[in-house]
Write a protein that binds this DNA or RNA. Structure first.
Lengths: 370, 370
DNA sequence: CTGTTAGCGCCTTCAG
DNA sequence: CTGAAGGCGCTAACAG
């Protein structure tokens, strides 16, 4: 029988030798059951003096119930797993912030795994989180690991996807209304007088958010014959590629007003870097509109027009979604699509400055999103 | 609608429907102990056929041991708690990234709490993490909760502070070598010909990193009588205050070259915003050097000179520090101070452009940091 | 080589 | 109103 620290030194009762419910019971001279009831808030069933003694004992011992043991018994851990594609991506972090806030409000704690956009690490993270018996999973997936996620969900673990859908997985999702947002973004460019548009994105890899944005981008252009558009899909970590792509785009759009729609904040960053290397200015040399509002959006050049996502809310709602499932909501999978917000800035403000289209038909009648 | 397992089998309420070691044992027709040994990697003690059967059973059942139960028994959870002052702060996230990477390498998982720079929430978070029996704590403290941290550390829980010291707590710390970094930053400004410097910071609130930077800033100026300096400490979330402060500084430094040292990335951001509102340009109207390298440092105006912190390494080392303690390292508290790196950019590059001091004595002899 | 037994800290019947 | 007993999933003695 190992000697318990608490028996030797009442002050040294934590992590290695944390006080247990038994210690409290002894200290308060009641049974463990009674203490447990106190912890469970069943005050109606406890006599005043007993309550007081327990309270005192807890304070004296600095006792804090073990979530581990609790979880083992009750079958819940109050732990929510979060798998994030890339913590360094401001989008991920902003979502994380919202999720964390919601969790804290409801007494949950986040277990975080970063996958660094790596498929294998995503799988590992999923497994790790499962081993911790997280009660729910918020996943900003990298897109390829349907099976493990599918499997965990099938086993009854609530899973909510954020931003990116997963082909073959029919579950809850919270994200931006990409179709409407991309439509709005593209129309804004057209209204501002740009007639040659390029949708710049990192390799799609089947990632739904990128694809949806691109699809809507093209759809809008189809309805505006006076404008032309193309999609530039490239490895943005290769600086040379971006430079070439932009240069090529500009060269081929001689005589027309060119503008770029950057598919994400990360892409926006690389576009801006390339523009700087090429000594090109927005909006005169090239218009620019980027998805994701960033700290610095307003500060670069004349300011960058962005399509802001309600990131905090996305994270918050993602947790709420999980919570609903945990409380027994069995309704069919939901997709919560939140509206984006266009923030017009200098990077799309052409010199003629009226905001009136330049030989382009006025904005189409608003239709239901496609 | 998929039927939830938990609805069918009340005993399977834990992380719904997970196979347990008992299931594997039954499936493989061995005892739980044997399976446990297999899991523990004690292959030398297991016959080939048994090994094979267990392996197969595990695969068939998709079994994964429960860290909770394991932790309860063995007394460790492989969980590291992280308390972050503000997840939206790029510094925090960058550190988090390094810590997460290190954790993953060693089979640990992060439990994350964000305090939103709030004292009470920091306390709550600490308590929550404790209830999860985290094995160690990485804390980017808000600075006021010495007692709980002190107490947890005293109880044998390894704690490592990141970036900010905690008055009254003598424990491990990983962070920037603030003295040397601030010295380097200040000297750079002087060398570049600025003769009136302002150290701009959010309220110090006794936060060590801010104070150390400020102290070194002033120390350097003391040794350069040709230059003058002051400290501007203000609530940076109040836009008006920053504008006033900067305007005041500029007004009083007529005839001298003024420059600002922003104490952190967050401050840098607000300074840049203010400059924009005031229609001031760096470096001609005002020089600018900011602590923390940010995504956009190179992109604003002529580029912002920064003092980059090795954030990833700080996080990584913080975890390693914890690991050493977990492995029994009982040596006295260590302070791991990592060097910063100055990244000179346009915001401190005066028109005369030679990089030679402007009527200011050459750089002082390098001394040991004070 | 393998199995049996006894808990880790807690909560939940079921008896007082 | 209170307590005793059993067990969550797992591992660590102790037998065989």
């Amino acid at each position: 029988m190992p000697v318990k620290l608490s028996d030797l030194d009442p002050s040294a009762v934590v992590a290695p030798g944390r006080a247990t419910i038994a210690d409290v019971a002894r200290e308060a001279e009641v049974s463990k059951t009674t203490v447990s009831r106190y912890l469970g808030g069943e005050f109606a069933v406890l006599s005043e003096p007993v309550q007081a003694r327990i309270e005192a004992a807890i304070a004296r011992l600095g006792y804090q119930p073990s979530q581990m043991a609790r979880g083992l018994k009750r079958g819940h851990t109050r732990l929510i797993g979060v798998v994030v594609a890339d913590v360094l991506n401001p989008y991920s972090v902003a979502v994380l912030d919202g999720a964390e806030a919601a969790c804290q409000q409801h007494g949950y704690t986040l277990a975080l795994c970063n996958t660094g956009d790596d498929e294998a690490r995503e799988r590992q993270s999923l497994a790790a989180l499962r081993s911790y018996s997280v009660e729910g999973l918020i996943v900003h997936t990298q897109g390829r690991n349907v099976q493990p996620i599918q499997q965990m969900a099938a086993a009854g673990l609530p899973v909510v996807l954020v931003d990116r859908k997963l082909a073959g997985f029919d579950g809850d999702l919270v994200g931006l209304d990409n179709h409407e947002a991309a439509r709005q973004a593209t129309l804004h460019l057209i209204e501002r007088g740009f007639t040659d548009l390029a949708f710049v994105t990192a390799p799609m890899h089947g990632l739904s958010s990128r694809q949806e944005r691109e699809t809507s981008f093209r759809q809008v252009l189809t309805r505006h014959p006076g404008c032309q558009g193309r999609t530039l899909e490239l490895d943005i970590r290769e600086p040379g590629l971006m430079d070439d792509a932009l240069r090529g785009f500009l060269a081929s759009s001689r005589g027309r007003r060119g503008a770029v729609v950057a598919a994400t904040g990360v892409v926006t960053l690389e576009v801006v870097r390339a523009l700087r290397r090429l000594d090109l200015k927005t909006p005169d040399d090239l218009g620019l509109l980027g998805f994701d509002e960033l700290d610095w959006s307003a500060l670069v050049g004349p300011g960058i027009t962005t399509l802001a996502q309600p990131t905090y809310e996305i994270g918050f709602r993602a947790f709420e979604c999980l919570l609903a499932r945990l409380r027994g909501d069995l309704s069919p999978p939901r997709q919560i699509l939140l509206p984006g917000r266009l923030i017009p800035r200098g990077s799309t403000h052409l010199a003629n400055g009226t905001g009136t289209p330049l030989g382009v038909p006025p904005v189409e009648k608003r239709r239901g999103q496609g």
